[in-house]
């Protein structure tokens, strides 16, 4: 850039490549020279032109308006700060602060009515909090987004009661959940590519439903529906998985497999598990947050929690 001659030739080459506007301004700058106008003015124009023609930069208006990538530079994926929500005067969530790290597996426990499900509703956009902030990474404000946008930003949710699309086959359930286009016309035109088929096959194997792929989801057993729903979550490729009571109604073997699966998911994804079953929570060995009356009562490893006096008081009424 320091050599003016080199710069000039660069401008000339670039002017051929770029728009008419650039050509015209070069013409103006040349005529300025010929008529002996003030040199600094011409220089300024030339500078501007060379700025326009720089090939290592993109014009501001050509840049995508918003970078959808989640910013986790501070190693925290989900921020809930000072969140409160009340229903008819009852404070379901009361000044809740919770941070989920990237790749973490977090269990949330707490007695009935502690606000566990309400918390999930807030994160996924189903309920709007009265006060507080919810951010995904440090760039995405979840309070400004609706359910669909939040889901597309990378938050997947499994409900307490398994909700699969009963009239569709297992395969179709997975196909619909697959990350990708969500626009009406392109969904109408959508066709499965070979890669996408492989992806569905892979998840089918993972959740152990290869045999049932063509069956209606409505005819699956309760445990299988739970698994299918987890499979649907995986197809969404979320960064954050919210799992509400994943082992309700499962046999012990199924429970073990679920624990294994959730453990294997942590790392690539952050997983938040709400669960009542203490054995299960112990088996997935992770950080535990205890929710009580809408705020976090204690946080730590399972043994810490079990020895915590406050927690004992809440759970056992001692």
């Amino acid at each position: 850039m320091s050599n003016p001659k080199q710069l000039d030739s660069q401008v000339n080459i670039a002017s051929v490549l770029t728009s008419q506007f650039t050509d015209q301004s070069i013409a103006v700058s040349r005529s300025d020279h010929e008529q002996g106008f003030t040199a600094p003015f011409a220089k300024q124009i030339q500078d501007n032109v060379s700025q326009l023609a720089r090939r290592d930069q993109v014009f501001e208006f050509l840049k995508p308006p918003h970078n959808p990538l989640i910013d986790t530079r501070h190693n925290i994926l989900l921020y809930l700060e000072g969140v409160s929500v009340s229903f008819d005067g009852f404070k379901a969530i009361n000044d809740l602060n919770l941070y989920i790290k990237e790749g973490e597996l977090r269990c949330i426990i707490g007695p009935n009515g502690a606000g566990k499900t309400t918390m999930m509703d807030i994160i996924t956009g189903k309920t709007r909090p009265d006060t507080g902030q919810v951010w995904l990474g440090s760039k995405l404000n979840l309070l400004n987004m609706d359910e669909a946008q939040i889901a597309n930003a990378g938050v997947g949710r499994k409900f307490q009661k398994p909700t699969v699309f009963e009239c569709l086959s297992v395969w179709q359930n997975l196909e619909l959940s697959m990350a990708g286009t969500r626009n009406v016309w392109s969904v109408f035109r959508a066709k499965l590519s070979g890669e996408q088929r492989d992806e569905i096959e892979r998840v089918l194997v993972l959740i152990g439903l290869q045999e049932q792929a063509a069956m209606d989801a409505g005819s699956l057993s309760h445990g299988q529906k739970q698994w299918l729903e987890i499979g649907m979550l995986l197809m969404q490729k979320p960064k954050l998985l919210l799992v509400d009571e994943p082992v309700a109604g499962m046999t012990h073997q199924e429970m073990d497999r679920t624990a294994e699966l959730l453990n294997s998911l942590a790392g690539d994804h952050s997983v938040v598990v709400v669960e009542h079953d203490m054995d299960f929570v112990r088996s997935i060995a992770s950080t535990v947050s205890v929710l009580h009356q809408g705020s976090v009562l204690a946080e730590g490893s399972m043994t810490d929690i079990q020895n915590n006096a406050k927690v004992k008081q809440v759970y056992l009424g001692e």
Binding site: A148, F165, F188, M232
Partner: peptide
Amino acid sequence: SRLGKVAVAIRDSETRVRFIGYNV
């Protein structure tokens, strides 16, 4: 088409479709 499947899914469980990321 897949659109038809989404329609059936909306019929059966609208909220679930929303949480998968479709603008119902």
